[in-house]
C-alpha cells in the first residue's frame, strides 16, 4: 500500500458517503443516474467474487464488502425509499452499448481464460465507462446540485490517484497491470471535462451550470 492508492481508496469511500448523505438529507435522488449506480453494483459484484476464495488483507476484505453493500443500499434508496424522486425519463443513456463492448473486450483481454478472471476484466472495463449515464444526464439537464458535484469530483479523483500509484509500483515493485492501467487512464480522462467546470465554477462558489 502506498499513499497514492490510500488517497484513492479514501476518495472512493468519501464519494459514496457523500452520495448517501445527499440522498438522506435532501430526501431525494434527483440528479443521480440510476443506471450508473446499477452499473457500479454490477462492477463490484463481478470483481469481488474473489472474496470467497482469495484472502488479501483485512483492509481489502472490508473495503470490498463495503463497496458491494453500499452500492446495493443506494439502489434500494433510489428504487424503494425515495422512488418518487427518481426520474427515469432523463436517465436515457443506452447501457447495452456499454455492457456489450465490455463483455467482448473482456473475452479478448484477460490474464487467464477462467470465469472469474474474465469477469474481473469485464468489471475493470465496465467501471471505466460506468459514469457515462451520469455524465450524459448532467449534460442533458445542464446543471447539478453542488453536493452532487462533490460526489462526482471525489469519484473522479479516486481513479486519478491510482495513476501515480501505478507509476510508483512500476518503479518500486517492477510490475504493470496493463488492463487496469489502460482502463484507469480512460476512466480518469472521462472526468476531465467535468473537472474543468468543477474547478472553475463550483470551487469558486458558483453553481454547476454548463454553457447553453
Amino acid at each position: 500500500m502506498n499513499l497514492f492508492r490510500l488517497f484513492g481508496d479514501m476518495s472512493h469511500l468519501a464519494s459514496i458517503l457523500i452520495l448517501v448523505h445527499k440522498i438522506q438529507t435532501t430526501r431525494s435522488c434527483r440528479g443521480i443516474s440510476f443506471k450508473t449506480q446499477a452499473l457500479y453494483v454490477t462492477v463490484f459484484v463481478s470483481r469481488y467474487l474473489d472474496l470467497f476464495y482469495d484472502w488479501v488483507s483485512l483492509y481489502n476484505f472490508f473495503m470490498k464488502v463495503f463497496f458491494i453493500s453500499s452500492s446495493c443500499y443506494i439502489l434500494y434508496l433510489m428504487k424503494m425509499k425515495f422512488r418518487p424522486t427518481n426520474d427515469p425519463s432523463i436517465d436515457t443513456f443506452r447501457i447495452e452499448y456499454l455492457l456489450g463492448p465490455c463483455a467482448i473486450l473482456a473475452l479478448i483481454f484477460h490474464y487467464k481464460f477462467t470465469v472469474t478472471e474474465v469477469l474481473w476484466s469485464f468489471s475493470i472495463f465496465l467501471e471505466s465507462v460506468a459514469i457515462l449515464p451520469q455524465l450524459f444526464m448532467l449534460q442533458r439537464t445542464g446543471e447539478a446540485e453542488t453536493i452532487t458535484t462533490h460526489y462526482l469530483a471525489a469519484l473522479g479523483a479516486y481513479r486519478a490517484f491510482y495513476i501515480p500509484n501505478w507509476i510508483y509500483r512500476y518503479w518500486t515493485e517492477d510490475i504493470v497491470d496493463p488492463i487496469a492501467v489502460t482502463s484507469g487512464i480512460v476512466q480518469t480522462a472521462l472526468y476531465l471535462d467535468f473537472f474543468y467546470v468543477y474547478f472553475t465554477k463550483v470551487l469558486q462558489g458558483q453553481k454547476f451550470e454548463l454553457p447553453a
Partner: peptide, 10 residues
C-alpha cells in the same frame, strides 16, 4: 517490467 494481475488493488 513483467505484467500481472495485481490482486491487492480494489
Amino acid at each position: 517490467a513483467p505484467t500481472a494481475h495485481v490482486k491487492d488493488e480494489l
